[in-house]
Amino acid sequence: MMKKIKYCKKNFKNGSKSLYKAMKEQYPDIKRKKSDCLGNCRTCRHECFVVVKSKCISAPSSDLLYKQLKKMIG
């Protein structure tokens, strides 16, 4: 079970802000951390991404990333 998802504030412009809000609403028990920069700039430029257990999870859109995270949560 994932306990915390890290979000990059710079990636919010790529659509991860809507993902952040959706995850907060759907899974209030999972902790969220917003950082100014997570250092995944190459991924950040092209896709939505989050970091779970120090692993970068990315997808071309926030909807696809949301589906990936839902699958991981179970």
Rank of each mutant, 00 (worst) to 15 (best):
K70W: 03
L65S: 04
K21D: 05
C8T: 02
G39S: 11
S58I: 02
L69H: 03
C44D: 08
K34A: 05
M2V: 13
K4L: 06
L38N: 09
A22Q: 15
E47W: 10
D36H: 08
K4V: 07
K24Y: 07
R42W: 10
C56A: 09
K67D: 15
K53A: 14
K4W: 02
Y20A: 06
K53R: 11
I5V: 15
K13G: 01
Y7S: 09
K33E: 15
D36K: 11
V52R: 02
K10E: 11
R45E: 15
K6C: 12
F49R: 04
S54C: 08
K4E: 08
P60R: 05
C41P: 04
L38S: 05
M72W: 03
K34D: 04
I57G: 02
A59M: 07
K55E: 14
K6W: 11
V51M: 05
V52W: 07
D63W: 00
K3H: 14
P28M: 05
K53H: 13
C44Y: 08
Q26D: 12
C44P: 08
K13L: 04
E47S: 14
E47Q: 12
A59H: 11
S16W: 05
G74N: 09
M2K: 06
S16T: 15
R45F: 13
V51N: 00
V51A: 00
K10F: 03
K34R: 05
E25R: 14
C56H: 05
M1A: 04
K55R: 15
L69F: 01
P28S: 01
L69M: 02
C41F: 04
Y7I: 07
D36Y: 14
S54M: 08
K71S: 07
F49E: 00
G74S: 11
Y66T: 04
A22W: 11
K31E: 14
S62N: 12
K6Y: 11
L64N: 10
K33I: 09
M23Q: 13
D63R: 11
L38T: 06
R45P: 02
Y7F: 15
K71I: 07
C41Q: 04
D36I: 12
Q26V: 06
I30L: 06
N40V: 06
S18Y: 11
D36Q: 08
S54K: 14
C37A: 06
K17Y: 14
Y66G: 00
S18A: 11
R45V: 15
K13A: 06
V51W: 00
K31D: 14
P60H: 03
M72D: 11
E47M: 12
S61Y: 04
Y66R: 00
R32Q: 14
N14S: 08
D36L: 08
L19M: 04
I30F: 09
Q26N: 02
F49I: 13
Q26P: 00
D29I: 13
